[in-house]
């Protein structure tokens, strides 16, 4: 378990963020950690599932935002 930095972009936000995640985090947790900095800060919450992915693809996750 080790922290590592991600370049993260939340759809609808205006800027690419530096977000620390753990290498053991499932994608649901990664999505939550990115959303923490954006949702209800600069982007309004929406009642729909969070989806996350890398620049190579997208995978569904379950939290709602």
């Amino acid at each position: 378990m080790a922290l590592f930095p991600l370049q993260a972009l939340f759809e609808g936000d205006l800027v690419v963020l530096l977000v620390p995640v753990d290498d053991g985090d499932p994608m649901t947790v990664v999505a939550d950690k990115v959303a923490h900095h954006v949702v209800d800060h600069r982007v309004a919450a929406r009642d729909r599932p969070l989806r996350s992915g890398t620049t190579g693809g997208r995978c569904p996750t379950t939290p709602r935002w």
């Binding site: 370049q7 800027v15 690419v16 963020l17 530096l18 977000v19 900095h37 800060h41």
Partner: peptide, 9 residues
């Protein structure tokens, strides 16, 4: 909630 907790790239 209007203050940053991380940095932009």
């Amino acid at each position: 909630a209007t203050l940053p907790e991380t940095f932009p790239m």
